[in-house]
């Protein structure tokens, strides 16, 4: 899957690119409004990750252009502007989602995955990970063909892990993913433990053992071996 990252900050561009490539995306980058305009005109992308504040133009204009061209690409807006102002404006113009800087890379992966899934596969898509088979549109999880019943939050949690296979996910990132980014992670970490314990137990009961590993003091990781 091919994404275009439009971001003028070199260091951030590099970290995001690296993270996306590790997760399995083909990533192209544009450091300016001009470059982005050129690439959008020439190539097709599954999703465009769009920074709104570019040195030579407003990211929202790029969004408008994409919409005018009826581009099939999804758009995920990355904004450093105050979340209280621009969120809604970006979404009104047709962005699929937004993420306010600073963001968790794991959250970016999860959002990106969701956008691409919604845009392209229209229910035909399924996820496979080791013995797991997930039909996201039907909210169905199968372990070696057997159905697994999960609560909604457990299911969300599993999808979050599946969007970040092999990556270390911090407890804060998980807490914010499940309870919203305004949640005060410092006071609400205890619930993650409960949910993870339950998810692990259910997976284990179906024989999917040791999928989620704990990194003490830091977070968790979906292990591919």
């Amino acid at each position: 899957m091919k994404v275009l990252l439009v971001e003028d900050e070199a260091a951030l561009r590099q970290a995001v690119t690296e993270s996306l490539r590790q997760t399995g995306y083909v990533v192209e980058v544009a450091a300016s409004f001009g470059q982005a305009q050129e690439k959008i005109a020439l190539y097709r992308y599954d999703c465009v990750l769009l920074d709104l504040t570019l040195p030579d133009g407003d990211g929202l204009d790029l969004l408008r252009e994409l919409k005018l061209d009826n581009s099939p690409a999804g758009v995920l807006v990355l904004t450093a502007r105050d979340g209280l102002d621009d969120r809604i404006k970006g979404l009104d113009l047709g962005a699929d989602d937004y993420l306010v800087k600073p963001f968790h890379l794991s959250e970016l992966n999860a959002r990106l995955r969701a956008i691409i899934r919604r845009r392209q596969f229209q229910g035909q898509h399924h996820l496979v990970f080791r013995d797991l088979l997930v039909w996201p549109e039907q909210n169905e999880v199968l372990v070696r063909g057997e159905s697994l019943t999960l609560t909604r939050k457990e299911y969300d949690l599993l999808l979050y892990f599946l969007a970040n296979p092999g990556r270390v996910l911090t407890k804060e990132a998980i807490a914010e993913h499940l309870c919203g980014d305004q949640v005060d992670a410092a006071d609400s970490l205890d619930f993650i433990y409960t949910h993870l314990k339950n998810l692990r137990k259910k997976l284990q009961e179906r024989g999917a053992d040791n999928y989620i590993r704990t990194l003490y003091g830091v977070g968790y990781k979906l292990s591919s071996e």
Binding site: E9, A11, L12, A15, V16, E18, S19, Q22, T53, A80, R81, D82, V100, K101, P102, F103, H104, L105, S106, R167, V168, T170, V218
Partner: peptide, 21 residues
Amino acid sequence: ASHETQTPLAIIQAQLEQLLQ
């Protein structure tokens, strides 16, 4: 302050998250 400070913070956060991997 609200725009410009968030950018370096975003860089630090992304790089630390990559470091974690």
